[in-house]
Design a protein around this nucleic acid. Structure first.
Length: 488
RNA sequence: GGUCGGAUGGCCGAGUGGCUAGGCAAGGGUCUGCAACACCCUCUACAGCGGUUCGAAUCCGCUUCCGACCUCCA
């Protein structure tokens, strides 16, 4: 039984077969680093992290590439030339690269927190201008692109004559050309293009534009779509295994990538296109305009009007994996709290499984849990089902501990293996260290209170022991008229 | 307006024709010095209306509601 994945391109479940076993190339569209990472930024990385871990578990050798978009794409097509990064930079009076650096760092901090493995290669768009220019040249040579006043556009209508533009996202070119909605948007700059559906490969930069590079067409900067095409081709080749991203990237981004790659290299860049769904809050996508965004940092600290408490990174990861990746996932405090408690139960059972005493008799075959887990993973990465099966393992562990069922050594070993392999290695759920400094303060204060009571009872042996033991741990205890204080 | 997707018990969320996913919450019980934990039991839902079928949450049609994309977006 093979690993099945839903391929957005064919809109069907396909059995995964690498192009060249045992190697698997994966490209994920990374973030545009112009703001702090929010809840939505975290879902894709977690989903594809589990995919990567599972492929590894199956024995494949993966190369995982996730880019950083630090060039910035257009604010909109009508824009006079500011890109997203530059715009933010002007507001804050700092270099665009500083913005990119800051938020790249925050993004990767969030990734580490939720235990997403670092990519094998993390290319930056700004470091691959040459590759992008080369690809644009190719497209010009092939006749699929044209220059207008320093801008280069991809000619969609020409490409569509011989290729199926719109297949991935289910668009019909004629509909797109008619313009969306009752009234076509009047975008300035739009008149430069031969057709509104054409997209920019290169944009001319005005003199005051901060981020710009030299090109055969003058000073400018690359369009958004070309960067992923250029970087994926460089590190994974012109035909690789899996291309992933959010469903919101289906159009135009991924449609454009396919068009560029087919026009320039003659083939689809990826064998499997995998898209995850969005995180919603109260049924709606997070958006700045709705003021319903929650940053990852907010979630960990609990500082947001939308949060009733702080949630741990692993709670977030577990929450994400409790839903299937292709469905929307609705955020709420109640849902996070449910995940928090469920995760705790699972982790405690996993720990308990380490100390189960074997019985001579056995009346539960643990193997069927692993079989079920594998079947669920193979069915388009059904992580919620995998978790349900892990809860069965937890129940069995607790029952064995309570004496309700008997497990022999083999089955206990298997139970431990299941937690280690599937909960920890594949799903990437870690037990979190409870080294919260607030807790430490509380514990020390508690000991000092006990010491105070001992002194009041004239139990000086106990009070001295508490002080000496704390001192041995490197904590200084000072008694004064006002009371007792401590320091490290 | 176009395209696509969705509506599952108090909440989150699996499930593409028959075998009550799972977690959380709630109620009852066992255990327990008290409590917590754990275990057992209970709550058996599929937007509405028709249709197909021996049998439908699952297939078909209609209706209502919601969302996403069509412009940057994870």
């Amino acid at each position: 039984m093979g690993f099945k994945l839903f391929n957005s391109h064919s809109r069907s479940l396909e059995t995964f077969e690498p192009i060249k076993t045992p190697f698997v190339g994966i490209y994920i569209c990374g973030p545009t680093v112009y703001g702090p990472p929010h809840l939505g930024h975290v879902r894709g990385p977690i989903v594809f992290d589990v995919m990567r871990r599972y492929l590894k578990h199956m024995g494949y050798k993966t190369r995982f590439v996730r880019n950083i978009t630090d060039v910035g794409h257009l604010v909109n097509d009508a824009d006079s030339g500011d890109d997203k990064l530059a715009k933010q930079a002007q507001l804050e009076q700092v270099e665009p690269m500083q913005i990119a650096q800051t938020y790249t760092e925050k993004y990767n901090w969030a990734m580490r927190k939720v235990n997403v493995l670092a990519p094998d290669i993390e290319p930056r768009a700004s470091g691959h201008i040459l590759e992008q220019i080369a690809m644009i040249k190719q497209l010009l040579d092939q006749g699929y692109a044209y220059e207008v006043d320093g801008d280069i556009y991809f000619e969609v209508s020409k490409y569509a004559k011989t290729h199926d533009y719109g297949k991935l996202s289910g668009r019909v070119l004629e509909d797109l050309m008619d313009g969306a909605g009752g009234e076509a948007r009047a975008l300035d700059g739009q008149d430069k293009k031969k057709n509104a559906v054409d997209f920019a490969l290169w944009k001319k930069a005005s003199a005051e534009h901060i981020m710009q590079w030299e090109s055969p067409w003058g000073m400018g900067y690359p369009g958004w779509h070309i960067e992923c095409s250029a970087m994926s081709a460089k590190y994974l080749g012109t035909y690789f295994d899996i291309h992933g991203g959010g469903m919101d990237l289906l159009f135009p981004h991924h449609e454009a990538e396919i068009a560029q790659s087919k026009a320039a290299c003659g083939q689809d860049p990826a064998k499997y296109w995998v898209h995850h769904n969005m995180i919603t809050i109260n049924g709606q996508k997070m958006a700045k305009s709705l003021n319903n965004g929650i940053t990852v940092e907010d979630l960990f600290t609990g500082k947001s009007h939308l949060l009733e408490q702080a949630y741990s990174p692993m709670t977030l990861r577990f929450f994400v994996l409790q839903a299937h990746y292709r469905g929307t996932l609705d955020f709420s405090n109640a849902a996070l709290q449910a995940s928090e408690k469920g995760l705790k139960r699972l982790l405690e059972a996993a720990e308990l499984s380490q100390s189960l005493a074997p019985k001579p008799t056995n009346n539960y075959e643990v193997q069927k849990i692993e079989d079920a887990i594998l079947a669920s993973m193979n069915e388009d990465m059904n992580t919620p089902q995998v978790i349900a099966h892990l809860f069965e393992a937890a129940r069995i562990t607790n029952s064995a501990n309570g004496g309700q069922i008997d497990l022999n050594q083999n089955n206990i070993d298997k139970l431990q293996y299941i937690f280690k392999t599937y909960a920890f290695e594949v799903l990437g759920i870690l037990s979190e260290e409870k080294n919260d400094s607030n807790m430490l303060d509380g514990v020390i204060q508690m000991l000092l209170n006990m010491r105070k009571e001992a002194k009041a009872n004239k139990d000086f042996a106990l009070s001295d022991k508490i002080r000496d033991d704390l001192s041995a741990l490197g904590l200084k205890i000072k008694d004064s008229r006002e009371g007792t204080t401590w320091s490290k």
